[in-house]
Write a protein that binds this DNA or RNA. Structure first.
Lengths: 304, 304
DNA sequence: CTGAAAGCGCTTACAG
DNA sequence: CTGAAAGCGCTTACAG
């Protein structure tokens, strides 16, 4: 009962590697120290960085994350949500592959806090997203700063909200000479767009601002096949900073990074705050993008 | 106390959406219905399909999965393992990005079952991996079946076990004319290899069997730049079936799929079996690969 | 067959 | 300040 006994108990406890049962603790504290990450992004292109940020932010607080990939299947979504609720998750983060679509499952009346990241949320919820207008402006301004004057925007389908948002920001920044070509999110569309631009009469652009890295890669390949030098003759800039595409393009792509990991970090900290009852303002939070300078534009890779 | 009361209780229970607290159940049953997936594969190229398979296999059994990305950081690995143990996971699946390296964390004396999938395991553990020799044989035999005779193997670094395994299988199947070019896992190595092969004197190969889809893409692009037609003049086959690379190559790549999702499914079911005390034979289980026929080889896309 | 009690592994509030 | 009891939400084994 004395100090020595106390000491000995403590020592033995650590010696045999005693670890308290988190389930039993959770029963009392009403906290499971787990959260769920729900996504319909099968490829993981957007979800992986978000997940990395969430995990990084929460591991220090002892919380683990359930990853639930639900495709676009409402039934599967329902099953996963119920499984998470049964396991008493402290909160749920919903994430996806585009900002203007919601997951195929209703998260609006759950007993646990929900935060939306890179997917559409319900009114009055907490929503994190990238500031695509800012990203587009970064791209255009960079091209202008290295002397480009006739910048064409080759992008994805017009029904994407982020496509319209980027195109609008481009329009404001691009000046007098401007043109937007809408298409699909593929390399072949990039090819095709170069065909359209270079086979018509008149001046050719000296820069292409592409809606994603795949389109950018397509344009770079198409330009090379036409004997046009990137970046000497034409600068090309991408969007997404998807390593595997951006870094393997020849030359490697200068591109806009949406800072999804940081977005995940903030979503993680926010859901934790809500779980602990701390007040959080609802609303949309737009996170700034970051320009990643490689070699497809020319210019110094030292700006950032 | 009568049947009516019983009925009424049941009805009310479902009406108000009563769901038993899994934490409390776990306290009794010694089962948490959670497992942990530990990985050092940051890109998620291999982990995502494995994860999808694990999740798909286990969701029906009510088990959720903690995803823990530990990079190559032993300290982080330790933290995540302890967090999982605290949360009483029923088992752990370790996965990674190559078969001949182990995760930077010791899983050999845990109180819960461990299954290894696409990463090196400890002796006497249960290990799932793809049968790369089978995959290589599939590739070579397909090329031969469509009439190719002089097949060169352009692959990754020789210190990868899977590289040696595939090269050996290639050697056995390729017949008299054979050559292996070791390099790195990049498109530019594919380019370079085409340069080496086509700038030397003598006969040129009529087929390239590449060690991954990135190398294959590099060779296809390099061949096109030389005016050599794929698949008319040369067939190219990849490895990994990494959609984003294989499908966007022009022409889309015929490639070998390692069936990682199925590997994940089996790993999931196996760790569940172990958790339930069912007997499982230790040892390495090699899963067959599958040929995915697209257009980079020619031949009919109907075989499979 | 029904209903009350004991117990899973902890923590918290309360007597001594 | 120390130690025993009560209780988190369930399930299981045991009396009635």
């Amino acid at each position: 009962m004395g100090d020595k006994t106390r000491e000995r108990v403590k020592r033995v406890a650590t010696d045999i590697g005693f670890r308290p049962n988190a389930l039993a603790r959770g029963l009392l504290s009403k906290r499971s120290f787990t959260i769920g990450l729900l996504t319909n992004d099968t490829y993981g292109r957007f979800t992986l960085p978000v997940m990395a940020g969430v995990s990084e932010a929460l591991v220090d607080h002892g919380v683990s994350v359930f990853l639930c990939a639900i495709e676009d299947d409402p039934a599967l979504g329902q099953i996963h949500v119920e499984a998470m609720l049964d396991k008493q998750v402290d909160g749920i983060i919903a994430t996806g592959k585009r900002m203007d679509r919601s997951l195929p499952v209703d998260l609006s009346n759950l007993s646990v806090p929900v935060v939306y990241a890179f997917t559409e949320g319900t009114p009055n919820s907490v929503i994190f997203r990238s500031d695509d207008a800012h990203g587009a402006a970064l791209a255009v301004e960079w091209l202008q700063s290295i002397g480009r004057r006739w910048i064409v925007h080759v992008t994805g389908p017009k029904d994407f909200f982020s496509v319209r948002e980027r195109a609008d920001a481009y329009s404001i920044a691009a000046g007098e000479c401007q043109q937007v070509l809408y298409g699909v999110w593929s390399e072949s569309w990039g090819h095709e767009a170069v065909g359209l631009l270079w086979e018509r009469a008149g001046d050719k652009p000296d820069a292409l601002f592409c809606g994603n890295d795949q389109i950018a890669r397509g344009t770079v390949d198409a330009l090379r096949e036409r004997g046009i030098k990137v970046p000497e003759d034409v600068s090309v800039i991408g969007f997404d900073n998807w390593e595997i595409v951006a870094a393997q393009t020849r030359p490697p792509l200068t591109t806009v990074d949406m800072e999804l990991k940081e977005l995940g970090r903030q979503a993680g900290l926010t859901v934790l705050a809500l779980a602990e009852g701390r007040p959080v303002e609802p609303g949309v939070r737009k996170l700034p993008c970051r320009l990643v300078v490689r070699q497809s534009c020319g210019g110094e890779p030292s700006k950032e």
